[in-house]
Design a protein around this nucleic acid. Structure first.
Lengths: 367, 367
DNA sequence: TTTAGCACTCATTAGGTGGTAGTGCTAATA
DNA sequence: TATTAGCACTACCACCTAATGAGTGCTAAA
């Protein structure tokens, strides 16, 4: 066998197309591979040597290309759906392709103009802004898009308010630094006066402003186990109410838009079963995990095919990135599409949308 | 022609199957029609005379049935997809069928047990409860389901609260009688003290408790045009803030669940284009209209095929009903499915779910 | 190292066949 | 008169077949 000839000399590695890490292909092989991928992204038909030899810039006979393709297949970049069909890029090929996109392409001015969020003008809350952003993204990409709402546990307290609305119910309002307002109702056994609630609230505000919900919960727990506080009545009551008020009842949520887009995407039907997709979207928790993961890392995060851990989504690629305010990373936003998506375009759109979203939310923040 | 023989004598009209209004079919024709419909609902295959002659209770030869079918077709209850195919019910037939379902069938105990809302236990707000209800409904019916959130304009004020969260921002909390909490942030030019906001809030509470948002807006408008109030500073300020606070910024919303279910329904692919469905769900406003309409009427509301005004949904049937608290109708909930759905079953499930939802929300109300 | 040529594979398409489920019509029957 | 049996006819469907064409791998020549 002579598949070795693709293994580039050092010269190849320093070629124009920035090669990364362990992938070593000579320049011509790269050209062919990228050409196949870009063709396939456009047509979603298997690419044959003859077709390629025409569309590729360099003059190479179909036979030569066949040799190269054959070797690329052997290295796991291409597969055939059947003998005598053209070749189709594998996940590995897309990974190579995405890595080779060194300079992120900028968003066309025309699309930039479309990426604006008008919900702020209508005095909408953070959730409303996120809903608009994810809808916009779905509209531009024509794929399914997801966004996670700011995590309650990491967000820091700007203000808490307790409002008596009936004898046994207290409305708790939490405003976080990020400008998110959460309300919930807690039920109490004995009635409290509004005055009392006010002093509890101001105690909690004073004590916990700027602390994260997580921290607050821990501190309250401390108070509760600390015996000495039992004797101070107001404090004890305040802490007890505070415990209820800060109890996590809002598991991080996510918004989905454009699921249906996937189903009429021609690229899509060829590779993934509709049924598993539906299951995937019904079981939000798994997608949440992926969103959470990409919150922790900077920049755009790309999962191609099997690279994500969620089996039902392994026929898809995910492009995720985080959004933030001045101070903190708040959540992430991204798209779910076929592995044969137009990465260049989608990545740039996701990136730019997240940027606009971040700016919009920063305006709303109290940091 | 002898199609006339289906036109029932008066005797037929008083037959067991309750016939409504203008539809006059003799008993045997009804039996055949209903039999066809029920067969088709089950199999979603065109029904032929031979098949029917076996499955139907009465002994009728295929030839006789053919005669009846031919006449039913002439009257617009059946169509053929092509010569020599069996017959398929039209919208008119389903309408007849639904009307003939005089006694609403009860929900099987087994399903009743599944229809429970657990979100209340987790201290969730009304929106959370609605989300759970619509998800449940989608799960049970395997169709797409929608629910409209309580209309802001008709809901009545329980309590308003104004909270200063920064120099130029005030958080407005509105609690309605139905237990819905709405928050929004308003921006103001000059800073107000919290004490001032408190007196404004208590003024507004006193003045407007139990009034609908719509009424409140009108009254505020009155105040503003009434010159005399201008000289009373507190009042004038309060009214100005109140105007901002009560401004409608929350257009009635709706939640959708289970859209994807439609796409793998076998009945469905046969009749409606996926594309128009997707458009339908992207353009929520039209579905909102239908939900609004069915809020105004009592009981379950059924739109079969072309009976709804929204072109994109005319391949579907909609089953809608309202939910309420003790005092008011709040919104509506329902399903969107193929015209050949199992009406008996779906109607009863929608009805029962709405009942449970109403009970759950009533518990949350302040009426 | 590249290319031309050739034999081969396999999906897709079009045409043809028999079987089947359905119809409408007519004439016989109860 | 209402019902039924019988028959000719239609159209879909599943199956086969042959032809087409895009693609491959291999080999030998340039």
């Amino acid at each position: 066998m002579h598949g070795d000839f693709l293994l580039g000399k050092k010269a190849a590695v320093t070629g124009k197309r920035g090669l990364l890490e362990d992938l070593v292909l000579n320049e011509r092989a790269q050209l062919v591979l990228i050409s196949i991928i870009e063709n396939y992204i456009q047509s979603s038909e298997p690419i044959g040597s003859r077709t390629l030899s025409k569309s590729i810039g360099v003059t190479l006979s179909p036979a030569t290309i066949r040799n190269i393709m054959s070797d690329l297949a052997e290295l796991g970049f291409l597969i055939q759906t059947h003998t005598s069909a053209g070749r189709v890029p594998t996940d590995k090929a897309y990974r190579f392709y995405v890595n080779s996109l060194s300079t992120p392409s900028s968003v066309p001015e025309q699309i930039k103009q479309k990426i604006t969020l008008v919900s702020t003008e209508q005095g909408m809350q953070v959730e409303g802004i996120l809903a608009e952003a994810v809808h916009l993204l779905a509209d531009l990409t024509k794929f399914a898009c997801v966004v996670s709402t700011p995590k309650a546990s990491v967000s820091r307290l700007q203000r808490i308010e307790l409002i008596k609305i009936s004898e046994d119910r207290i409305l708790v309002i939490l405003v976080t630094k990020a400008g998110v307002v959460r309300d919930k109702i807690i039920f109490v056994k004995d009635s409290h006066s509004q005055d009392f609630l006010n002093s509890v609230a101001s105690f909690l505000n004073e004590k916990f402003k700027n602390h994260s919900m997580q921290e607050i919960r821990e501190k309250i727990h401390q108070y509760l186990v600390d015996d000495r506080n039992r004797y101070h009545d107001l404090l004890a009551q305040a802490v007890r109410l505070g415990k209820k008020a800060f109890e996590l009842n809002n598991p991080g949520e996510m918004l989905i838009d454009g699921q249906m887009n996937l189903l009429l995407d021609s690229h899509f039907h060829k590779q993934s079963s509709v049924r598993s997709l539906i299951e995937a979207f019904n079981q939000k928790s798994e997608i949440m995990k992926i969103l959470d993961d990409s919150m922790r890392q900077k920049g755009v995060h790309i999962f191609i095919g099997i690279e994500n851990d969620f089996e039902q989504l392994q026929g898809c690629s995910l492009i995720m990135t985080s959004y933030r305010n001045n101070q903190n990373v708040l959540g992430s936003i991204g798209v779910v599409g076929p592995t044969s998506m137009d990465y260049k375009r989608i990545i740039s759109i996701v990136e730019y949308t997240a940027k606009i979203l971040s700016e919009t939310i920063t305006e709303r923040s109290y940091d």
